[in-house]
Amino acid sequence: MRVLVIGAGSIGQRHHDNLAALGAIPRLLSWRAGGLVAAEAAMDQADAVVVATATDIRLPLIAAAAARDLPFYVEKPLAFRPDEVEAIAEAAAPVATRSMLGYMMRYHPAVQALAADGLDDVFQFALTIGHDVTQWRQNWRFSESYAARAEGGGVLLDLCHELDIALTLFPGLEILSVESLGHPAFPGVDFASRISLRRGGLVGDVSMDYLTPGLHRRAHLRGSERMQDFDLAAQVYRVTEPGGTRQLDLPLERNAMFLAAMRDFLALAFGGKVSDNPLLPRLNLCLPSARLVARAWAARRFIGEIAKEIP
C-alpha cells in the first residue's frame, strides 16, 4: 500500500505518521520540492494519494490522481469557488467512491451521537468554534501561512468542519446570509464569520473566529422534545428532556479521529472493509458539504474590521 502524501506541513506529517502506524508505506512530498511536475512523477510510483496542500492547488493534483485511477484523500475544504468544486467533482468522478474528503469530525463521538438522535423536533441550532490564531502553534506566524491569503484563506475555510456538521445533521440547509469581519492588514481575509442557515421551519447559525482567547467548540440544538448542549472542547455533553438533564459520556482522543479516517481511506482504496460509521466522508457523499462551504465563502459580506494585531 504505497501512499503518496503531498504537503509536508503539520497535517501532512500527521497523515504520513498515521499511515505508517496503520501498515501502509507512505512517502511525504513537499509541494515546494517541485510542484505539479514532481507530484505527478511521484504519483507514478504510488497506489493512492493524500492531498494536504493549500486549497488553491487541489484541482490539478486531484485531476492527475484520478487520471491515473488513484484514489485520494483530500484535506478540507475541497475548494473555495463553486465552479472549482464542480470541476473537481467532474475530474474525480472515476475514483470518487474510493476517495475521501477530510471531514474527520464525522468520526467525533459527539457528532455521531447527535446524528443518531433523531433531530426532527429541532427548530433552532447554533454551532460555534474559535481560538486566537496567534496562539495556534509555536514558531508559527499567521501572516506566513496559507490562511492569510485572500484566495483560499480565512476562518470560514479554515474551520469549515462546523458547516459540514450542520449539513450532516440537517440535510438541505440553504444559506441566508454570511457576515464577516476583516482586518486592514489582510484584505479579503475573514477573521470572524457567521453563516445564517435555513431549512423550512428550521433556522440556525454557524460561527467561527480567529479571535477568542481560549478554544471554544460548541453545539446547541433546541427542539420541542429535548435540548442538546454539547461543549466539544471541554467534552461535556448535556441533554435536557422533560424528565430532567442527563450527561453523555463520550470520551475522545483527537488523533483517534484521524486514525479512523485514514483506516477507512485505506479500506476504500485497497478493497478492504470500511468501518460502520454512518457518516463516512466518502468524496461522492461529501459534495453537498463542499458546495455549501464554497457558496458560503462566495457569499461573505464584510461588515467591519478588527483591530487586534496579527503577526
Rank of each mutant, 00 (worst) to 15 (best):
M1V: 12
M1P: 11
V3M: 11
V5P: 03
I6S: 06
I6K: 05
G7S: 06
Q13H: 12
H16K: 09
H16T: 15
D17N: 04
N18C: 11
A20F: 03
I25Y: 06
P26W: 11
L29Y: 10
S30M: 03
S30L: 01
A33N: 13
G34W: 13
G35F: 09
L36V: 08
D44T: 13
V49L: 09
V51D: 01
T53P: 07
A63T: 14
A65P: 08
D69C: 04
D69E: 13
L70F: 10
P71C: 11
P71I: 10
Y73W: 12
K76E: 12
L78H: 02
A89L: 05
A89N: 01
E90D: 14
A93Q: 04
A93F: 00
R98V: 04
L101E: 02
M104S: 10
Y107W: 15
L114P: 02
A115N: 09
A116N: 01
L119T: 00
V122L: 00
F123C: 08
F123Y: 15
Q124H: 14
T128Y: 05
I129T: 03
D132A: 11
Q135V: 00
Q138S: 10
E144A: 14
S145C: 05
A147Q: 13
A150H: 13
E151K: 13
E151D: 15
G152H: 08
L156M: 14
C160I: 00
T168N: 02
P171Y: 03
L173M: 06
L176S: 07
S180K: 05
D190S: 13
S193D: 07
G200I: 10
L202T: 10
Y210N: 08
L215P: 01
H216P: 02
R217S: 11
H220R: 15
L221I: 07
E225K: 10
F230T: 01
A233M: 06
Q235R: 15
T240I: 14
E241Y: 03
D249W: 02
L252P: 05
M262I: 12
D264C: 11
F270C: 05
G271D: 03
V274P: 10
D276N: 14
P281K: 03
P281W: 04
L283E: 07
L283C: 12
L285G: 03
C286S: 15
P288G: 06
A290N: 12
R291L: 06
A298T: 11
R301C: 09
